[in-house]
Design a protein around this nucleic acid. Sequence first.
RNA 1: GGAGGGAUCGCAUAGUUGGUCUAGUGCGGCCGCCUGCUAAGCGGUUACGGGGCCUUAAAGCUCCGUCAUGGGUUCGAAUCCCAUUCCCUCCGCCA
Length: 422
Amino acid sequence: MLSLRFIREHPDLVREGVAHKGDTAPVDEILRLDCERRELLAEVEALRARRNEVSQQIGRMKQKPPELIAEMRQLGDRIKELDARVDQVDADLNGLLLLVPNLPHPSVPVGLDDRDNIEVSRHGELPTFDFEPLPHWEIADRLGIADFERGVKVSGPRFYFLRGLGARLERAIIDWMLELHSREHGYLEVAAPYLVRRESMTGTGQLPKFEEDAYHCEVDDLFLIPTAEVPVTNLHRQEILDAGVLPLKYACYTACFRREAGAAGRDTRGMIRVHQFVKVELVKFTEPSTSYQELEKLLDDACDVLRRLAIPYRIVQMCTGDLGFSATMKFDPEAWLPGQDRYVEISSCSNFEDFQARRANIRYRPAPGAHPEFVHTLNGSALAVGRTLAAILENYQQADGSVAVPEVLRPYVGVDVIRGVR
RNA sequence: GGAGGGAUCGCAUAGUUGGUCUAGUGCGGCCGCCUGCUAAGCGGUUACGGGGCCUUAAAGCUCCGUCAUGGGUUCGAAUCCCAUUCCCUCCGCCA
């Protein structure tokens, strides 16, 4: 969230940023409640100071004067009344603050939606085929390495099974990516819980605004994670870190669960948009002064995966309207899918500055004895495994219907070519 | 699921017959003195959040809150009562 003080002191900046995100957060209502809150606090704190003083006096007296005690009892009632009002205003204010999106970085191009995003760069040669390249669901179906129909039978639309070398390929991708990030890019591998508390979802910004997108276990009030960002960022919730440990870099693979509310009709076939998918996620905690450098490195670590797989890709910068709720800046690497003749988002790398840190209360001490400050948090997929699998199938498909295994994955898969599975 | 124990200012602890607790002490951290250097010693300092005053700002001053969380009793709660959460031990069940 934004700091209340910042909103109070820069209301116009906030209004502008919120508008550029296409959001309608009630900034003026927040300012009004903030005023009311401070007036109430001044009043109730003065009363409390008097009560503290008189109570101490009473404590020192041998004879307790009943009229003084009666007066204090009245004062106590008044304090209780005011406290109740402060609590109410606090709760209202907090509820509203959680609905205010993070402000875009000033350098981010202003725009309405994904049509205003900027293509930053293109990498790799688009493959050419002497046959008509197929979409990955057809390739997978013909090879018998995925089973979409039975996914629907067992779990419903947007679920699928992997079989044989399909399942092994997915496992190989996960394993190889984690090795790359932990051994070469310097991330600490973690394995995280798939179910998290409401506070964790609020910490990273999924709640309260986007509850309908999440799977929720009502009896325990736990949420299935939509991304490893949630458990891994919340690792350091309510902590004060030593400056020396920053930047902290984590790599974590998890399944991710998304209801895809509002996506009806989009990407209904294949592995692109499903309710459950595997993703390797990178999460960083940095000092504020270095977070944009770290974002560049994070983006490059994600793109490195695509380069090593020799999958053509481009990098797209999100405009203000497509940044999402929590990010100040976001880049999406998109992989080329020849079977569909289009680029598809395969990663998303964001800086949240102190937005999540403030919600989750993640701080660091810049120097011994110095006051704690909020860290900056960043994350990015590297990569979405299901979409990587789809990209491999489409880019490495061969005329005879088989799929070559990318060089780097061969030791993990154990074969050079994927042929049919029965 | 059952029984019991616990949660105090970075760490370890004192404090539970309610009022000099604005929470003591040790360790650690920081600053300084001392020292050829290190250690030791000596002195000082040492949380977080919020409001106000004063400031360009920082610093400073002041008030309020926080002894797991939320309620309650009371003129006054770390201390008494209730609920909740988390942790630990034992039993049961379980991959």
